[in-house]
Nucleic acid binder design. Structure first.
Lengths: 139, 139
DNA sequence: TTTGAAACCGAAAAATT
DNA sequence: AATTTTTCGGTTTCAAA
């Protein structure tokens, strides 16, 4: 279904998803049209979910990046989760198992902004916060 | 420095980083050449760090996705971190504050694979594992 | 008033789809 | 064959000199 060439394509696109089919083809000695067909199939079958972007949040004025895990109060996940993931500060969010229900990566201007953000979260559950020091590797 | 138009460009590229300059320009009523100039500047100044990819790990044969936080044994972060981020299973890794030193998102074939992976990690530190149930929103 | 920098546009050649 | 990318010259704006 997904063979070795597909995995190479995925690896290449993970490094740079804006490469042209020609450039991708050169890297694996495959014609542009073959590259295109394979990538289209990966998109259509849902293997590739989205093409996206990594941002330097500091340069956008967000000097703090944190993980926040939230232990949501009784029951109503659905509303809390959709509310939370609508916040501009929340860059990613996952439902997880364990002590907490939600794990999110959040970008914030400064300490005051963090405090205000946590004040909002405490109406939904108990948050636990970890500062992000750096991203490691390009795994 | 980064104005409102730039923020729109970033929002658009975050949704789909493979859009053409023409398509991006239509969305914000800007010529393709201007779109290109602005995006190039965002790349050159480092605001845009990378164009990348979201993958459905299940369809690649990885039925488990987990967060693992690691409390690394004495001192030598550097080697441990570079070792860890070289593993194919590790999709992202961050240095963080708190009880643990590293936070990573890991994709694995099955429970046995997870067990073997944890067995490797315990030589470096104390791991704590949380299953990922689902990704929420498209934040 | 002039100068220079920054942003935008349109047209044409080169490259990609 | 059609579309997109790339390059480049020209225009406008704005603020500093």
């Amino acid at each position: 279904m997904v063979d070795d060439v597909d995995r190479k394509l995925i690896r290449i696109l993970k490094e740079n998803s804006r490469l042209s089919y020609v450039e991708i083809g050169k890297k694996i000695f495959l014609s542009p049209s073959s590259v295109r067909e394979r990538i289209k199939k990966l998109e259509d079958t849902g293997v590739i979910k989205a093409y996206t972007l990594n941002i330097n949040e500091n340069l956008l004025g967000n000097s703090l990046e944190v993980f926040i895990m939230l232990k949501i109060f009784s029951g109503k996940f659905k509303t809390v989760i959709s509310e939370i993931s609508s916040y501009a500060e929340v860059k990613e969010a996952y439902r997880i198992t364990g002590q907490h229900n939600v794990h999110m990566r959040v970008a914030l201007k400064d300490q005051l902004h963090l405090q205000q953000f946590i004040d909002k979260l405490v109406t939904f559950g108990e948050p636990t916060t970890h500062l992000i020091l750096s991203k490691v590797g390009n795994s």
